[in-house]
Design a protein around this nucleic acid. Sequence first.
DNA 1: TCGAAAATGTTGAATGTTCAAGAATTGGGA
DNA 2: TCCCAATTCTTGAACATTCAACATTTTCGA
Lengths: 147, 147
Amino acid sequence: MAKSPHPNTPLTEHLAYLLAQANREINRQLETRLSTEGVPVEQWRILKVLSDGEGHSMGDLAEAVLLNHPTLTKMIDRMVSDSLVYRRQDAHDRRKVLMFISDRGKALCKRLNSLAASQEAHILENYGDKATGELKRLLENLIDAAS
Amino acid sequence: MAKSPHPNTPLTEHLAYLLAQANREINRQLETRLSTEGVPVEQWRILKVLSDGEGHSMGDLAEAVLLNHPTLTKMIDRMVSDSLVYRRQDAHDRRKVLMFISDRGKALCKRLNSLAASQEAHILENYGDKATGELKRLLENLIDAAS
DNA sequence: TCGAAAATGTTGAATGTTCAAGAATTGGGA
DNA sequence: TCCCAATTCTTGAACATTCAACATTTTCGA
């Protein structure tokens, strides 16, 4: 037998594990940066999506920021309390709730963008421009292939 | 001005976001496979680490399976209830708790390995052998560079 | 040797997430 | 037209995670 069918593969050889590990590390760094403003990563994502000034339905938002519906609803509740975003009913489809960013939200988002940009810059520096570009490309392809 | 300093970058151009998205998708697929056995991904990782038959301290385990200490403690509590693993005090350092896998745990782990392997095979098929290898390499480097 | 600080793991309260069910609205076929 | 199924979002209970504080053991310098 040249190869056993299920060799005792270490965890670190699984793609799923490497992704989890990398995601955890990068996310942690980003979290640390954003904590200056006391905001979780997901809220930054939400603000960023809403930054186009358009109204986005809860469903679309949930999809975009990688949260499921109930979780998003409760996070939006907090953000509304903080006057970062507000809800409006969609006139054309009254089942829908459209979310908008407030001026306060815009100002915060700008500051958060800077913090995030400085993190990306830091990664580029340590990891290299080329590798980063290549990694992004491969990740995009993987996401397409997987969904 | 050739370039604005903070262009309104879409979420999908951030490395952190791509990682989160890819991780979510792959993890979901794996979760779906493992749900046949009613086991969360983290428990599979724990079993896999313990599969070498050695005792592993809670701290080392937590590091290896990407969980923080209290979360691991409670997950191990459940696994002990299910007779998948057991605790022993470390004779050399009595602060430490060493974890071991049971026969039941080993049998389960074997089945889980098959399920996980079939997922990896499925990815390889859709995504390509070469791209997968390259992605793994880049992720490993990123993890090194980032920590 | 002694005692303070560090290391290791667990616990309980606060917090957050998820699942299942529910309310409101829309769409489309009988 | 009318009614039933599908869509969209929210809610409440069950569940899981996190933070801070604790108990135990070890380490190491005075």
